[in-house]
């Protein structure tokens, strides 16, 4: 368990640090910043993240619904069902 925990902390750190440093590396404001462009660009970056994550989650759900429905030829009774308990 602790190995897993350490591993996940390492992975998290490896992803967070570059992201944060990237974000903070941007230069300070020029005189007339194009507010519209900055904000909409941020919006599209956020939407890219949201749609990628959404694609993964929605894809998983659709696949699960298709694969684990009881009418799927591959469906077999779960162990809990056979024991008749929950």
């Amino acid at each position: 368990m602790s190995k897993v925990f350490h591993l996940s902390i390492i992975i998290a750190t490896l992803t967070i640090i570059p992201m944060v440093s990237l974000a903070f590396a941007a230069e300070t404001a020029g005189e007339y910043l194009d507010r519209k462009a900055e904000i909409w660009n941020l919006f599209f970056r956020m939407m890219t993240v949201a749609f990628v994550v959404g694609g993964v989650i929605a894809g998983t759900m659709v696949w699960q619904v298709w694969r684990f429905r009881e009418s799927n030829p591959k469906a077999k009774p779960t162990p809990y069902e056979e024991k008749g308990e929950l």
Partner: peptide
């Protein structure tokens, strides 16, 4: 362990969102 990795990924993404937002807000408020 998949759940821990999943939570770690979610937290990493949130940190990214927060940092980006902070950065842009900092720019437009100047």
């Amino acid at each position: 362990w998949p759940e821990w990795i999943y939570v770690a990924v979610v937290v990493a993404l949130l940190c990214y969102v927060g940092a980006e937002a902070w950065n842009i807000e900092n720019l437009v408020e100047h």
